[in-house]
Amino acid sequence: MRHSFGVRTKGSLTVFAAIIICFALSACSGPLSTLDPAGPAALAASRLWWGIFIGATVVLAAVVALWLFAIQRDPRSGTPAQPTGAEQTTGEQPATGEDTRLIQRQHQAWIIGGGIVLPVAAIAVLLMFSIPTGSLMSNMALEEYQAQSAEPVLRIDVIGHQWWWQVTYLNTGSNTASNPGPASGAQADIRLRDEIHIPVGVPVRLFLSSADVIHSFWVPRLGGKLDMIPGRTNELRLQADEPGVYPGVCAEFCGLLHAQMKFTVHAHTPEDFAAWVRSQQTAPDANGADGADGNVAQDQDSAQEAEND
């Protein structure tokens, strides 16, 4: 090991590697973990993550190794330069003459190879993987599903408030492929607060907006997030592959109690979901979904905004 102003090269690399390994092996699961996917969108994103994580680690290690090696290399003799052990230089004049042509070409190769070719190639590969993943996550194969299935796609309106979630189910079974937007408020039947129920294995359409400030809807184990912005409606498509309870959070700072603005997504088997829907429809006021300012006018506002999109 060389000691030169505290750089114990091998030692620091070992520590660094240890951190990386711990990082990689430590628990990836958790109720809000993007690395514990429970739906196709989250799964695609997590695969993308592991790919780029490995790639980035390799690049970081290679660049750091090159750097440290370049520092100790002595171009005259090929052996490591002698440590000076002093604050100042050894007193020899710096080399300022012109580099030889060969060396100039080598330098050119470094810069073009490492600075242009390498990034361009990496970017091409990254786009090649990320564009299809993005397409998958935003579309969730909805058109294919609608073409094959007799069941209408579930449409749910979610309005963000400071600091709770107003959930309104929009289909009462009248959805068709030619009516892609949310239905008018008059057909709304199920209203919930801070929770959403969905069937497993099928995509659902969530129409997101806000009644006050910008919020963001995020269920990490199911898919990416989408902002809820007053004056516009954004559509998020999610699918859960297994029955279970998936927590969600608000992911855009929205004021004092932003940290407390949470919700849960309950994914049921198709039979259980149908039973749940029936139970909601037979007791429409039992779920207290109107919220702090809740009234029918609010629902109509949100649907109106959605239609203006």
Binding site: L48, T133, G134, L136, G224, L226, F253
Partner: peptide
Amino acid sequence: LVPFNWQVHD
């Protein structure tokens, strides 16, 4: 990368 960004943004 947009799809990864959708998970880790914010």
